[in-house]
Lab assay of single mutants.
Amino acid sequence: KKIKIKIKVYNPETKEVLELEIEVSEEEAEELAKKLAEELEKKGYKIEEVEI
């Protein structure tokens, strides 16, 4: 079964909002969402919402 992940991120420095969407297997979904959120935060983005 495929799971659709939508991530909306906001960069306070540039006032930019990015929306990302990807489909992955159920097993990958939670781990991938967690890794993406961590990487984006390292780059200065503030995570507003992660929906699985």
Rank of each mutant, 00 (worst) to 15 (best):
K1N: 10
K1Y: 15
K1E: 06
K1C: 14
K1R: 14
K1G: 07
K1V: 07
K2D: 03
K2M: 15
K2C: 13
K2T: 12
K2W: 15
I3G: 07
I3N: 10
I3Y: 15
I3Q: 07
I3R: 14
K4E: 02
K4R: 09
K4P: 01
K4D: 02
K4H: 10
I5R: 00
I5G: 00
I5F: 13
I5H: 01
I5Y: 12
K6Q: 03
K6S: 04
I7R: 00
I7V: 05
I7W: 14
I7D: 00
I7G: 00
I7L: 09
I7M: 08
K8L: 02
K8C: 04
K8M: 04
K8E: 01
K8Y: 07
K8T: 10
K8N: 02
K8P: 00
K8I: 08
V9W: 08
V9M: 14
V9Y: 14
V9R: 00
Y10E: 02
Y10P: 00
Y10M: 07
Y10R: 04
Y10I: 05
Y10W: 09
Y10T: 05
N11Y: 03
N11R: 09
N11I: 08
N11W: 06
N11V: 08
P12K: 15
P12I: 15
E13P: 06
E13H: 13
E13F: 15
E13N: 11
E13L: 13
E13V: 09
T14K: 07
T14A: 05
T14S: 10
K15N: 11
K15V: 03
K15G: 12
E16P: 01
E16K: 12
E16D: 07
E16Q: 12
E16M: 12
V17R: 12
V17K: 12
V17S: 08
V17H: 12
V17F: 09
V17P: 04
L18Y: 09
L18S: 05
L18A: 05
L18I: 13
L18F: 14
E19I: 12
E19Y: 14
E19A: 10
L20R: 02
L20P: 01
L20M: 09
L20G: 02
L20A: 03
L20D: 01
E21T: 10
E21N: 11
E21V: 13
E21S: 15
I22A: 12
I22F: 15
E23L: 10
E23C: 14
E23A: 06
V24A: 09
V24M: 02
V24F: 04
V24T: 07
V24Q: 02
V24I: 05
V24Y: 04
S25Y: 14
S25E: 11
S25H: 11
S25Q: 10
S25W: 10
S25D: 12
E26Q: 10
E26G: 07
E26I: 09
E26T: 04
E27K: 04
E27M: 13
E27T: 09
E27V: 08
E28L: 08
E28R: 11
E28P: 06
E28F: 08
E28C: 13
E28Q: 10
E28N: 12
E28I: 12
E28G: 13
A29P: 08
A29K: 04
A29T: 04
A29W: 06
A29N: 02
A29H: 04
E30G: 12
E30N: 12
E30H: 14
E30D: 04
E31Q: 10
E31R: 08
E31D: 04
L32R: 09
L32N: 04
A33K: 06
A33Q: 04
A33G: 06
A33L: 07
A33S: 07
K34T: 04
K34Y: 13
K34H: 06
K34F: 14
K34N: 06
K35N: 05
K35G: 05
K35S: 05
K35A: 04
L36A: 03
L36Q: 01
L36D: 00
L36E: 01
A37Q: 11
A37K: 10
A37I: 15
A37S: 11
A37P: 02
A37V: 13
E38W: 15
E38R: 13
E38L: 12
E38P: 00
E38K: 08
E38C: 12
E38G: 05
E39Q: 09
E39P: 00
E39G: 03
E39H: 05
E39T: 04
E39C: 12
L40F: 07
L40E: 00
L40S: 00
E41Y: 08
E41W: 08
K42H: 04
K42Y: 07
K42L: 10
K43M: 13
G44F: 01
G44D: 00
G44Y: 01
G44R: 01
G44C: 05
G44A: 01
Y45E: 01
Y45P: 01
Y45W: 08
Y45G: 01
Y45M: 04
K46M: 06
K46P: 02
K46F: 05
K46Y: 04
K46R: 05
I47A: 01
I47Y: 01
I47L: 03
I47C: 04
I47R: 01
I47N: 00
I47K: 00
E48H: 08
E48G: 03
E48S: 06
E48A: 05
E49G: 12
E49F: 13
E49M: 11
E49C: 15
E49Q: 11
E49W: 13
E49L: 14
V50Y: 05
V50C: 10
V50H: 01
V50T: 02
V50D: 01
V50P: 01
E51G: 05
E51V: 15
I52A: 02
I52S: 02
I52V: 07
I52C: 09
